[in-house]
Simulated assay, not measured.
Amino acid sequence: MDDDLAAEWEAAMTEQVGSAAEDGGSWASKLETQIAKTEEKRKNADRVLNQDEVDSFLGFNPAELGLSDQSGIRAIINSALVSYERLPMLEIVFDRLVRLLTASLRNFTSDNVEVSLDIIKSVRFGDYLNSIPLPAILSVFKAKQWDGFGMIAVDSPLAYSIVDVLLGGRRSTAKLKVEGRPYTSIETSLVQRMIEVVLEDAELAFRPVSPVSFSFDRLETNPKFAAITRPANAAILVRLRVDMEERGGSIEILLPYATIEPIRDVLLQGFMGEKFGRDATWEGHLATEIWSAKTEVKAVLYDKKLPLRRILDLDVGDTLMLDLKPDALVEIRCGDEPLTQGRIGRSGEHVAIQVAKPLRRSRTTLAAFEAAGQVRKETA
């Protein structure tokens, strides 16, 4: 009996932890190893996520802004941003700005300058300010007709390149060293002249869409002093790449959505002259057809609601008392809509209604119908 019980225990332990003869170990040592593995798995299950795993879960990447390739909770937060693709005319405007700016900067620097459109995207203003690499030159400008502000950011490589070109520096293939010192008054003055050139070309680029005047407001080197809208507000960010042979940098133009809101309807167009909602030709045709349409008009002497039980009890010879005086006005209706009131009478062998009050005016304008009526009279 004891031998059978020992054999049963041995078979169970062999199935759980393996044979005692394997690797020269005992059941006790293998059991301790199994317990250690189970404890390690439990600790791994309770392990706290590191920063990279947290950033991956939230979809946060400090190197990128906007809506490109984001996932997780941050993608849900940024879903409130309006994509610039809903404003197709805006991309056409900045393509025109690239062509204008290429010619203007060539004349400004007397050098071979190539301007290219790097990216257009939607960002949050606060996130953009925190991502600006320092030192940088920030220019705040005002759009007078739109009653709003915008911002132009010139990075350090481009600022030093412009200073080097305008002051007659040598054309060197070596990359310019970006220093951490503040900009001098001469450097800021030269960069300001370039920014004024950019603003002039931006006016020309927007002129076919909406005439606007961009006026230089101030120059800042600290992003905190260049705040033009609330940090959570959405804005359009346009990055232009400026290459002058082996040197150059980037210009970033930021326009809050509140600034371009007055011309939003124009920017929604896919091409110049596109019309949304209102078409004068179709409007006139519709008004002409409505003007010549026939409609049925009814004169209602008396209107009163009665219980269904009383109506079912009516029989031949019953009399309905109308609460109406002989000189009372009758209501003229078109369908269920009341038009005016009139007085009932007789004209020859016919019963007639004399209009006693002016027609009830519609809530919509009648200018289109009056214009269509004038055209109909002239063609008659």
Rank of each mutant, 00 (worst) to 15 (best):
D265V: 07
D265C: 06
D265N: 15
V266E: 03
V266G: 02
V266D: 03
V266H: 01
L267G: 00
L267W: 01
L268H: 03
L268Q: 02
L268W: 03
L268T: 02
Q269N: 15
Q269W: 01
G270R: 10
G270L: 07
G270K: 15
F271A: 13
F271G: 11
M272T: 12
M272P: 02
G273W: 09
G273K: 10
E274F: 09
K275N: 13
F276K: 11
F276A: 11
F276G: 10
G277I: 00
R278L: 12
R278Q: 12
D279P: 03
D279E: 13
W282N: 12
W282L: 14
E283G: 09
E283P: 01
G284M: 04
H285G: 04
H285P: 00
H285C: 10
H285I: 14
L286S: 01
T288A: 10
T288N: 03
E289C: 06
E289T: 12
E289N: 07
I290Y: 05
I290N: 05
I290H: 07
W291F: 09
W291V: 00
W291M: 03
W291P: 02
S292H: 15
S292A: 11
A293M: 13
K294V: 05
T295I: 14
T295G: 07
T295L: 13
E296F: 11
E296R: 14
K298S: 13
A299P: 01
A299M: 10
A299T: 04
L301C: 09
L301H: 10
L301E: 11
L301M: 13
D303N: 15
D303A: 12
K304D: 10
K304G: 06
K305M: 08
L306F: 15
L306R: 08
P307F: 08
P307T: 13
P307K: 13
L308T: 07
R309T: 11
R309G: 05
R309C: 05
R310M: 06
I311T: 10
L312G: 03
L312N: 09
D313S: 14
D313V: 05
D313F: 04
D313M: 10
L314C: 07
L314V: 04
L314H: 06
L314S: 05
D315N: 10
D315A: 11
D315T: 07
V316P: 03
G317W: 00
D318Q: 06
D318A: 03
D318C: 04
T319I: 13
L320W: 08
L320P: 01
L320G: 03
L320A: 12
M321N: 09
M321G: 05
L322D: 11
D323I: 09
D323E: 15
D323M: 08
L324A: 12
L324W: 07
L324C: 10
K325Y: 06
P326I: 06
P326V: 08
P326T: 09
D327W: 04
A328G: 12
A328W: 08
L329G: 00
L329H: 02
L329S: 01
V330E: 00
V330F: 04
V330H: 00
V330A: 05
E331I: 02
E331D: 14
I332M: 02
R333N: 07
G335P: 00
G335M: 14
G335Y: 06
D336M: 08
D336P: 02
E337Q: 13
P338Q: 11
P338Y: 05
P338L: 11
L339C: 05
T340F: 03
Q341N: 08
G342K: 02
G342S: 08
G342Y: 02
R343C: 03
R343W: 03
I344D: 01
I344C: 04
I344Q: 00
